[in-house]
Amino acid sequence: MFEWLFENGWALWLIVFLILAGIEILTLDLFFILMSVGALAALISYFLGAQLWLQVVVFCVVALAMILFVRPIALRHLHKGPNDQRTNIDRLIGHPAVVVQAVSTEGGLVKIGGDTWSARTRGQTTLPAGSNVEVIQIEGATAIVTPLPTASSQGSPATPAGL
């Protein structure tokens, strides 16, 4: 079998490429896909008539160059975006909520945009059920909330958006 692979080096490099691409699909780390580019370069060098040792050198050099030079640029572009663009739980900070079960420094429950979260307050105040609050921080799976100003202090009813 090894003799066949050495005679048909294109199959060896194609298998290496597919294995590395498959690992990248599982990890999504932009590491193995760049190594698979090295395997494609080695495949091309096979078709250009290079010896096996030279194909291995091409694979190593191209894969290393891709990891050292292309990966940092690709990661920078992937993480590029507006500074105020928040994702996941960070988007909940500043979001209004409604107290479902009285919230104190010990705990309670709030409804944030249709989801029920465990919650706590920072101060010594206890917020009764039905109170309108604002999420000021997320600690693990607990929302830290503070009361919203009442309708009399703003001149209009305080209604949480998205509920």
Score class of each variant (00 low, 15 high):
residue 1 M to D: 09
residue 2 F to E: 11
residue 5 L to A: 12
residue 5 L to Q: 10
residue 6 F to S: 13
residue 9 G to Y: 02
residue 10 W to F: 15
residue 10 W to Q: 10
residue 12 L to M: 14
residue 12 L to Q: 05
residue 15 I to T: 15
residue 17 F to I: 01
residue 19 I to A: 09
residue 21 A to Q: 10
residue 22 G to C: 11
residue 26 L to Y: 07
residue 27 T to I: 13
residue 27 T to F: 14
residue 28 L to Q: 14
residue 28 L to T: 15
residue 29 D to G: 15
residue 30 L to R: 11
residue 32 F to I: 11
residue 32 F to M: 15
residue 33 I to L: 13
residue 35 M to F: 13
residue 36 S to N: 09
residue 43 L to P: 00
residue 43 L to V: 07
residue 44 I to V: 15
residue 44 I to D: 02
residue 44 I to Y: 07
residue 45 S to W: 02
residue 47 F to T: 06
residue 50 A to W: 07
residue 51 Q to F: 11
residue 53 W to Y: 08
residue 53 W to E: 12
residue 53 W to H: 11
residue 54 L to H: 09
residue 54 L to G: 05
residue 57 V to I: 15
residue 57 V to P: 04
residue 57 V to S: 10
residue 58 V to L: 04
residue 59 F to T: 00
residue 60 C to V: 13
residue 60 C to H: 02
residue 62 V to S: 03
residue 63 A to T: 02
residue 64 L to Y: 03
residue 64 L to D: 04
residue 64 L to K: 04
residue 66 M to F: 12
residue 67 I to T: 10
residue 71 R to V: 07
residue 71 R to L: 12
residue 72 P to E: 12
residue 73 I to D: 06
residue 73 I to V: 15
residue 77 H to R: 14
residue 81 G to T: 08
residue 82 P to M: 10
residue 82 P to W: 06
residue 83 N to Q: 12
residue 86 R to W: 05
residue 86 R to Y: 10
residue 89 I to E: 02
residue 90 D to V: 04
residue 92 L to P: 01
residue 95 H to A: 12
residue 97 A to W: 01
residue 97 A to I: 01
residue 97 A to R: 02
residue 98 V to I: 13
residue 99 V to P: 02
residue 100 V to N: 07
residue 100 V to I: 12
residue 101 Q to A: 14
residue 102 A to N: 07
residue 103 V to T: 06
residue 104 S to D: 05
residue 107 G to L: 07
residue 108 G to L: 06
residue 110 V to L: 06
residue 110 V to Y: 02
residue 112 I to G: 00
residue 113 G to Y: 03
residue 117 W to A: 08
residue 119 A to R: 04
residue 119 A to K: 00
residue 120 R to Q: 10
residue 120 R to H: 05
residue 121 T to Y: 04
residue 124 Q to T: 15
residue 126 T to S: 12
residue 127 L to V: 02
residue 128 P to Y: 09
residue 128 P to F: 08
residue 129 A to T: 11
residue 133 V to N: 02
residue 134 E to D: 03
residue 134 E to P: 01
residue 135 V to I: 09
residue 135 V to K: 00
residue 137 Q to W: 06
residue 139 E to G: 05
residue 141 A to R: 05
residue 141 A to V: 05
residue 145 V to F: 00
residue 147 P to K: 07
residue 149 P to H: 02
residue 149 P to A: 13
residue 150 T to K: 15
residue 156 S to G: 01
residue 157 P to I: 12
residue 159 T to L: 14
residue 161 A to R: 04
